[in-house]
Simulated scan of single mutants.
Amino acid sequence: MNKQHIRWGIIGLGRIANSFAQDIPFTTNASLQAVAARDGDKADAFAQRYGATHAYDSYNALFQDPSVDAVYIATPHSLHLEQATEAMRAGKAVLCEKPITTSPSELEQLTAIAAQTDSYLMEGMWTYFLPAVQKAKQWVDTGRIGKLLHVKSDFGYPQLPYSPDKREYNATLGGGTLLEMGIYPIALARLFFGEDPINVDQQSHLAPNGVEDDTTTLFTYPGDRYANLASSFRCKLQNWTYIIGEDGYIAIPDTWRANRCLLYELDTLVDEFDDKRESLGFHYEVEAVSQDILEGKKTSKIVPHSTSMAFQLQIEQLRKMAGSLQPCSAAL
């Protein structure tokens, strides 16, 4: 691609889209070109707030805008398959917020369409791009904690009062804590162990409409190694990750948005890292994806399609074990 930066469009202008747009100015290779919402007034206000050139009251209008190179999809999970498909068929690169789809079969369809249209497609697991998380991975890979034995990770915020119509609980929108929050701990276990567990145990609590609202999971890996993961709509969890080895452990505070990590030997802090950023942290992902697109790549080496499929397969397994309702979305 013979250009210096990627012009982004955003659809679905909620909280996370605001964070994404707010961080684009911290990049060196991206700009915000267009935004779209069902409500034209909302799109106009968002565009004015973040300096987008165009605002649309139709997602398709944004997909057809020739000045847009890439689309960030920040709508509910159940809409991702349809909207990412439309964007790629319109010739756009796609960064789709996690979870990229609500089932493995949907992801198979989406990656097939990416191949058919020769399009860039990546799931927006922004946590993988944070320098603190990458530093923790480097410490593990270079033997700073010895043999890896345990990963403990959780993510939970109260989503109360309960309502079956609230997006987080709405079964037709892919509601439930595993797709909404549990994907973060699952992703951290995948990042550090780098393989599938050989055994899975789980305890879950279901909301009145049948979607899971609290889960605790134990993954067992070869060599008697374990990941203890949790997610919740019922309470605030610590939201930290601990990577524990024979010789020490790493703590990552507020892992999903981490700006620092801490290395311990027993109770002694021996090393620490702080990225000292001024942004929210989304710009690391935006910069990396924009560079991929500029270089003509079709997938990310940080979040390849195989990693997204691993998330989907594990979440599907856990939802079946919990007995929670399956999300409703139409196959294309």
Rank of each mutant, 00 (worst) to 15 (best):
V140P: 05
N170Y: 08
A84R: 01
V303I: 06
Q138M: 09
A61V: 08
I6L: 10
R49L: 03
F273A: 08
Q202H: 10
D57S: 11
G40R: 15
S324R: 07
I16P: 00
A187N: 15
L79T: 02
S231Y: 14
A171K: 09
D274E: 13
R167K: 13
A230H: 12
Y157N: 13
L263T: 04
D292L: 09
P99W: 11
I293K: 05
A187V: 14
L107D: 05
N60G: 04
L95D: 06
F20Q: 03
L218T: 05
P131T: 01
I113A: 12
G176I: 02
L107H: 10
S329W: 02
M1L: 12
R190D: 15
A45Q: 13
I243Q: 05
G245V: 06
G9L: 11
D275Q: 14
D44Y: 01
H305R: 00
V140H: 02
D41L: 09
S300H: 07
Q203W: 05
R15C: 05
F311C: 11
G281Q: 07
A187Y: 10
P208I: 14
A55L: 06
T177A: 12
Y157L: 15
Q116A: 15
F20K: 09
Y162T: 01
R319F: 04
L188H: 06
V286N: 00
L318A: 01
Q291D: 13
H77Y: 05
T255M: 06
A189S: 14
V140L: 13
L107V: 01
L266C: 06
F311D: 03
L269Y: 06
A45R: 13
Y59A: 06
R260Y: 10
T172H: 02
N18E: 14
C261T: 04
T75F: 04
K301F: 05
G245R: 12
Q317E: 07
L294P: 12
R144Y: 01
S19K: 10
L13T: 03
R167M: 10
I250E: 01
D271V: 07
